[in-house]
Write a protein that binds this DNA or RNA. Structure first.
Lengths: 142, 142
DNA sequence: TATTGTTATACTCTATAACTATA
DNA sequence: TATAGTTATAGAGTATAACAATA
């Protein structure tokens, strides 16, 4: 691929990113959905069990302070709860509350986030291609 | 694909998005690169010629007011200039300045944005898969 | 009345820096 | 001295609402 075409393709890709992200935000803010990061944290806590802020930050490639804000917002909403670590007084264990778990179940059952619903409407082959791209994106940040 | 797997894959994809976007922002802010949107606007003005704020907003799927902020920032930096529309007094034509054009040329020659450089390091096949995903993302927002 | 653009304001997400408590 | 977390502050990006000028 010629250098100019590469650049043009990269910016077309970036534009596509932007379109999808702006749509996610617009839909989420007009229907009380959680943000992508908030949802991802709930999903992780459900699938892998309790974790600390630092662990969540590492898992999502964010700074601990940034994750702290996300965690505080979820805790304010009553979706997760803080518990002291049994032996290390510095650490705080985060876990889903019954309310958080219920939200996860209803969200999953209802395919309630716009993104999941939209991807679900794609053909199987498009879905496969999209998820393949996910792994390639990870390579970019290695 | 089972519903649960679909949801998990979607959130993994969203996480990948987030990682790449946070990296882009981090690199851009620490090296005086332009933001993705700002770069995309310059690229469009270079490739397709002068345009109005409303046209740029439509092209990038943003609200005119939001694009107005981007445009103002590029104008403040001296990269684009405003000219009155010859017949419609409401419209303002935006075009690259010599400084903006020079920046485009040097950016392209140096592969100077992190994203372009990172994608350039991928294998040809990965690049192809990534750009294919771009088209699929567009389907999501249709 | 409809459209283009600007201004004012606010919200979300994320970052850095400084601090406290604990190890 | 190092680590986990919190608080304060700031910046980017985008949104909505209200307005002015023009069509």
């Amino acid at each position: 691929m010629a250098q100019d075409d590469l650049e043009a393709s990269v910016y077309a890709l970036a534009d596509s990113f932007g379109l999808v992200l702006r749509r996610i935000r617009a839909v989420a803010s007009s229907s009380n959905e959680l943000s992508l990061t908030e949802n991802a944290v709930l999903v992780r806590l459900e699938r892998e069990g309790p974790a600390t802020t630092a662990e969540l930050a590492r898992a999502h490639g964010m700074k601990p302070q940034s994750m702290g804000a996300t965690v505080a917002s979820l805790a304010d909403a009553g979706l997760i709860a803080r518990k002291p670590h049994p032996t290390d007084g510095r650490q705080v264990i985060l876990a889903l509350t019954p309310k958080g778990l219920a939200l996860r179940k209803s969200t999953r059952a209802a395919k309630r986030t716009w993104l999941v619903e939209a991807v679900g409407r794609l053909g199987k082959e498009d879905q496969r291609r999209l998820f393949a791209a996910s792994a390639i994106l990870r390579k970019l940040v290695e």
